[in-house]
């Protein structure tokens, strides 16, 4: 059995693990087990991000995404966004807990000053406090909704990101519940991003790890190749170098090089998470 390899067709989407694996929560489904004390990857500085942005503009990157951990734990996050918005559109994946009114006003000002889009993606893992808090910790549902209200008041309307931690989150009825929740929050332009779960990190402990048959084989390749996988158009930068995608950052085998120019070759789809991306058609971008 040979392991299929995916080529990088173009570098459209560049991710930054801008808060490392440091988070103010310890969600039970986190595929990289982020927590207040997890320093597997550490915070990135403005200087580090800026030097990769320079490489990225040369390579024709189309859009930038920031994740962690919780990006707003990074003390330089707003300066990092300002530098990014000078060269392209930016999206931040946040748990919503640090979105106080003053920060939301500053983010709105950054968005208004750029010719490119700034998108905030706030995670909700249930449409009730009971469902959400079971994954993310007590009281986090109310606090995330508070953050969403503050964004809305500042004129920024977030995308709600929902993982399919419960079967009914991803059903048509479940999606409708999330849309009606957004309408209750007076969000005029509701947007929803669904993500399947990856059975790695904390999630492996919550609902079980991958089984041995969940691997990609050469014969699984669609007729037009592996272009549907996000790794054919993305890379992920952390404080320790450049990884193939946002999912495999806790696997040293997912690291492709130190700088973007080292990572323009192909990558073996050997990890069981690659199977999830193929089967569920995953892209982490909005």
């Amino acid at each position: 059995m040979t392991v299929p390899r995916v080529a990088l067709g173009s570098l459209d989407t560049l991710w930054f693990q801008v808060a490392g694996t440091v988070c103010n929560l310890a969600c039970t489904h986190c595929f990289i087990s982020c927590s207040p004390t997890n320093r597997t990857h550490d915070m990135m500085s403005l200087e580090e991000v800026a030097s990769h942005l320079e490489d990225a503009t040369r390579l024709g990157v189309k859009e930038y995404y920031f994740t962690g951990g919780e990006p707003f734990l990074n003390p330089e996050m707003e300066a990092i966004l300002e530098a990014t918005l000078a060269v392209g559109p930016a999206s931040v994946l946040t748990n919503g807990l640090l979105l106080d009114p003053a920060r939301c006003q500053r983010l709105a000002a950054l968005a208004a000053a750029s010719e490119y889009s700034l998108d905030l993606r706030v995670s909700l893992d249930g449409y009730t406090a009971e469902g959400h808090d079971a994954i993310r910790g007590e009281g986090t549902f109310d606090r995330a909704l508070e953050g969403i209200r503050h964004l809305h008041a500042a004129g920024l309307e977030p995308v709600i990101t929902v993982t399919e931690v419960y079967d009914d989150n991803g059903s048509v009825a479940g999606k409708e519940r999330f849309f009606s929740l957004m309408r209750e929050l007076d969000i005029e332009h509701p947007r929803l991003k669904m993500m399947p779960v990856f059975q790695i990190g904390a999630e492996a402990e919550r609902r079980g790890a991958y089984e041995s048959w969940q691997r990609l084989r050469d014969e699984d390749a669609p007729a037009d190749g592996w272009d549907h996988l996000q790794c054919s158009t993305c890379r992920m930068v952390t404080d320790q170098g450049v990884w193939v995608c946002p999912i495999l950052v806790n696997e040293p085998s997912g690291k492709m090089g130190d700088r973007l120019a080292d990572t323009l070759g192909d990558f073996p789809l050997a990890h069981p998470a690659c199977w999830t991306c193929h089967v569920y058609g995953v892209t982490c971008r909005t």
Partner: peptide, 27 residues
């Protein structure tokens, strides 16, 4: 996690993960 890293599902000393990731990929 204090002092430890998550390597997949395993907890390993931070230095072990960092050494492995330093060796990985091209430079």
């Amino acid at each position: 996690h204090r002092g430890l890293a998550t390597w997949g599902e395993r907890l390993v000393p931070l230095a072990t993960f960092q050494a492995a990731s330093a060796r990985a990929g091209r430079s």
